[in-house]
Structure formats: C-alpha cells, structure tokens
Design a protein around this nucleic acid. Structure first.
Lengths: 334, 334
DNA sequence: TGCCATCGTGTTAGCGCTAACATTCCCCAC
DNA sequence: GTGGGGAATGTTAGCGCTAACACGATGGCA
C-alpha cells in the first residue's frame, strides 16, 4: 500500500520500456517525433508505474522556464479556493510550477512588492484574480517587470496577455429578466463599488432588461460589495413606496446583507421580497434561504489562464459562460 | 527597474564574494562551519544582489527532500487564505517547496487520493487543516503512505507528527465569562457538529464558566456549523422563556445565522440580544453588526506547522494563543 | 616536537529532467 | 544501386544547488 521507497524516475521508465530517457521525455511532452508504437509502449509503462515527472527537475532542465505566478489578495475573496484549484489543475496539466504569492489589494507598495517577488522567483507569467486586475499599482508593476499576465474577471488592460471574464452585462440582464418573468415589476438593484468595472456592467445589463420590458421599474442604490453595505442599501430600497418586490445585489455578500435587512424589516424571503446575488460564492449557498445567483466558472477560468500562459498565445478579452443558479431566495411576488 | 536578464545564481554570488559556491550554500543554510568574516561578506553580496536560491534546484539537489504538502478541503473554509499565507511564509523561511492539493472532505476515496498524490509528488510532510484532521479516511491514508503530518485545530492522532490548536475549552470559557461579566444571566449556546471534537470542548468551556458563576444559566442547542443551522438553533433558543439575552455560537457561520434570526424575531443586536462567534473568519468582520469572536492565529499555526515538519521534531499537541476580539455584537443586556 | 582532532573551505559528483546535437535507419529518386 | 533526406531514437551536457568527501591550516596535548 505504501509508496515505493522512491518514486520512479524517468530512467526507471526508460529502462522498463526499453528506450532512452529522452524518448520517454518526448512522450511526456507531447510525443512529437515518436512512432505510435513506441509512444504506446512507453505510455503503458508510465501508466503502470504511476509515474509523474518531477516538476522541479523539469523546470531546472528547461533553464528555469515554466513557472507561473498566482497573485492573491483580499483573503476574504471566496474565489481563492476555486482559483487555486483551477490554477493547480492547469499547472499540473501543463507541467508548470505554480508560485503563489499573497498580495495586499489597496496598498500600492505591497502590491508592487508581491509582483516583484514573483519576478525574482523566475515567474514568466502571472494570473491576476480580482480585484488586483483593476489595480493600477499591480498592473504597473507587472509591466515594469516585463511579465505576461492574464487577468481574471477584469477588463483588458494595456500590456497584459489577456483577460478572461463572464459577460457581466448579459448575466445581469438574464437575472433581471428572470425576476421580471417571475412577475416582479419593481426591482431594487444594489450596485457594487464604482472602481470595479463589473459594477457598471451589471447595472447596464439590469437596466437593459428593464427597459426592454414594459411597466417595470428599476430602483438603484449603492454598496461597496460588503455585507453591511448590502444591508443598508436594502433598507433604503425597502423604504421606497411602493416597495420593490425583488432585490438584485451586485455580489453575494451584499445579497446576504440584503437578506438580513429584509428579515429585519419584518418581511419574508422569498414570499414578500425576492433576493438575488452574483458570483455564487460559498456564502450564497450557506445563507438561508440560499441565494439565487450567477455562477462564474472561476476554477475553469483559472485553469484556462494557466494554459494560456503556457502556450504563450496572447488574447484579447475572452468571455466565459456564466450560469444562473436558482435557489430558494427568489419566487413570484406574494 | 526591470529584473536583470536572468536572476543571479549561487555561482554569481560566489564569484562576487570570492568564495566557492559551496560556501555560499553554507551561508544560506544556516552558516555552520563558516567563519564569521566570510559569512558576513557573503551575506552582504547576497543582500546586494537580492539573491534568493531557486527552490526547485535545492529540492533536486537534496535528493527530493524538502517538499511539504498542504491538503485543503472544504473550499468554504475561510481558513484557507490564512493557512495558505502562513504555510507559504514558513516554506519560504525554511527553503521548502509547498505542494498544495485539493481534497474533498466527506468523500473517503477522494481524501485518500489527495494524500496519495502528495506522496507520489514526493512530499515528506503534510499540513492537515480542519476538518481533515479528524477524518479517518485522511488519517488512514497518511499512515498508509508513511508520511508525517501536523494537524491543525485537531486533537492529536495516532501516528501523526503532532497537532497545533488553540485551547478550545479555555477560549470558550473566556468568552462565556465575558458575557457573564457584561451582565448576562441566561446564555444560549449553539453547539457545532458532534464529529468535531472542538464542539464538545467549547461546550465544556462554556459550561465551566457558567458553573463557576452563580445564578447563570446555559441553554444549549445544536447546529452543524452552517449559517442556516445557526439561524434555526437561535430561533429555538429565542423562544425559551425567559429569553436568553446572549447567544454564543460554536463558529462564526452559525453566529451570523443567529444574528439573522435575532433580527427576524424583531430584536436588535446587541441592544436586546448579544451574539458571539468563534474563529474570527472573514464573515465575522463583514456581517453587521460585526461579531465578537475568538481569533485563532491560523496563519501562525500553519507557519509553525511547516517549520515543525522541516525540523523533523515530533510533538504532542501544542496549544497556541487565542484572542478574544470584541466587536459590536455584544453589550450588556438591555 | 610531533601527531591527531578540528575548523574553514574547496572539489567532485549527481539530483531528474530536457535542449541540442549526433546517429541510425529506411525509403525513394535518379 | 546508391546517395540524399527525413523520421525515429540515442548521447552529451548542463540547469542551480547541495551531500560527501578532500584538503590545508591551526592548535592542543602527550
């Protein structure tokens, strides 16, 4: 049951397959210039031995190439776990070493330092999750270090290797449309921070859906993506007369806060007021009633970002598919 | 501003300092058997060049030793970011390579697979954050693979290299005592899942504090560490007559749920009902009113776990210091 | 005074892998 | 046939670092 004394090396595989180590290496790395027969034989031995090449040795042999850095800020970010597993999966698939570095969104010096450390560690490419992708300090540091970076859930930026994001406008439109379809005619929107472009995009999407329907009104209030700001914005929106029957928040934290406000005002969700969020973070599913929200395939985005960096192809923004997750917090108006 | 074409290597440093690479290596690794004069000279060059040894090369040279694995489960776990940054800090300090592997708490086969992958990757030691440290599947897999592991926030287990945790009993007692000091005489406790030993420990601590005071009563209800279970348990507790004036939940998720329940019942926090949590996760600070809670130095625990693994010393349980964080959710009874 | 322990330092080899070049072999055009 | 060209495979060297040993210089003790 226990692992062998030592994990097999490429030489072990080569010996068992009756080829040279180089041929094994070629099979591992895509099998160019290897006959089909040899490739299959070697692959069979690899599978049988459960062999996996040592990333450290590969990196070294490639002259240090093959390291990609993952910045992470805002430990609050429920994205982290997903970004991490996606990035790890991508790194494993591409045979890259993932270097993880804590950053500190909001502190320019720290942000630059995090990028610098990654550069010093030999990273060639960076994955930049929100909110760092919209931070001037981080972007400047990346350009200064001459690194390639793929931004997650951010608009494209000068000098970056690309951005991967959902189409916030249509996702917000879709959610709003769903509320309209349920029969809601007065919808309160809790917008997020102005310094993140997703906020305005989501508002635009919601507005578009409302404009396309007739007899539907959108009430807009503002938050800053925190629970508390959602709580307060929801309170203000619920004071409007006639009262909105649905609240759509720019993220799940604010939606959770809105949920609390609805309860605090003596209403029930979803019987009296429906609440919808955005992001499908952990919070969305753990709160009660669980939130109807928009799911971004964060892990998949991170995985693709790594692969993109590995293949060195540059892209403009690429949109990835979102999905509307319907849970218990939305229903037709009472 | 940009990094040099290539990061400096140990040979560059050796040349500039006029010594051999080996001497530089010795300076980096603790400076045994190096004269003070040489050490200082080399160190100066290292600092000037901003040199950092390449972890991949070190690992390779050490014959593969120096890898430690970090398991993580339950992406919901707000610990993750903290565990991660602590573990990274420790790994950097000790010159180790941190291998991160997603696990899947609750699925024995997946849990075992995660451990196996780490073993296959050459990990010698493992960091096991909650709730994996109390999972039979994970612990068995670790023993089966012959790995050393340090458990975080878990009781010590047979065959493990040690456990690092706060003293749940006294932390819970301290929080309870604080509520008593504020003047509360009926306190509702929302206990966590029975399969995690911390639940019982926290209850024992709370009970001890109540028993030591006179005229104080503890009402106990149960949850499973989720927001919703906290919400429901709080509802039940608030229905008791006379009504408890303070609720103490076994973790922050349940405390956040309790907060919502208090609002839903038409009470104010902390004016009518105080609420306290445990763990000081992101949620605790973002909810409103912000939760009084117990902070575990999670990052520090992870850092120490890595160092412990590096030094190969085995320990029994070691308790780390907790801290009571007083925020807005507690006050004297109205 | 000589011998060995000890200290500070250098030398050699090799970790597991891959780039770059070398070799072998086969097939086809002439 | 025979030489040239390519495809499949092997050989060599080296990535950056450290274990293990080698070596000269001290110094303490008989």
């Amino acid at each position: 049951m226990a692992a062998d004394d030592r994990n097999p090396t490429i030489d072990d595989i080569a010996r068992r397959a009756g080829v040279s180590a180089m041929t094994v290496s070629r099979v591992i790395n895509g099998g160019v210039r290897v006959s089909a027969a040899t490739r299959e034989r070697v692959q069979a031995v690899i599978d049988a031995a459960g062999y996996a090449p040592d990333p450290a040795a590969r990196i070294l042999a490639r002259g240090g190439a093959g390291r990609i850095g993952l910045l992470y800020a805002n430990p609050s970010n429920a994205y982290l776990a997903e970004v991490l597993s996606g990035a790890l999966a991508g790194a494993r698939a591409a045979g890259l070493l993932l270097m993880i570095e804590p950053s500190q969104a909001g502190d320019p010096a720290q942000e630059a330092e995090a990028v610098r450390r990654l550069a010093a560690g030999g990273a060639q490419g960076l994955i930049v999750p929100p909110p760092l992708g919209e931070s001037v300090a981080t972007l400047d540091a990346i350009r200064g270090a001459g690194l390639k970076a793929v931004l997650l859930a951010a608009p494209p930026a000068e000098g970056m290797a690309g951005a991967l994001r959902v189409d916030d406008v249509s996702a917000a439109a879709e959610m709003t449309q769903r509320l309209i379809d349920l029969g809601h005619r007065r919808i309160g929107l809790i917008e997020g921070r102005a310094d993140q472009s997703a906020s305005a995009d989501r508002r635009r999407g919601a507005q578009a859906a409302v404009d396309a329907a007739s007899g539907v009104e959108l009430l807009v209030d503002h938050g800053d993506f925190t629970y508390r700001s959602g709580f307060e914005a929801a309170r203000r929106l619920l004071a409007a007369r006639p009262r909105p029957t649905a609240l759509f928040a720019g993220n799940d934290d604010m939606a959770a806060g809105a949920l609390a406000a609805v309860h605090a005002e003596g209403f029930q969700t979803p019987a009296d007021v429906s609440v919808a969020g955005f992001d499908d973070t952990y919070l969305a599913a753990s709160v009660w009633p669980a939130l109807t929200t928009i799911r971004q395939p964060v892990a998949e985005m991170a995985r693709r970002a790594v692969l993109r960096l590995a293949s060195r192809e540059e892209i403009e923004t690429e949109f990835v598919e979102h999905r509307l997750i319907e849970r218990e917090s939305t229903a037709p108006p009472g």
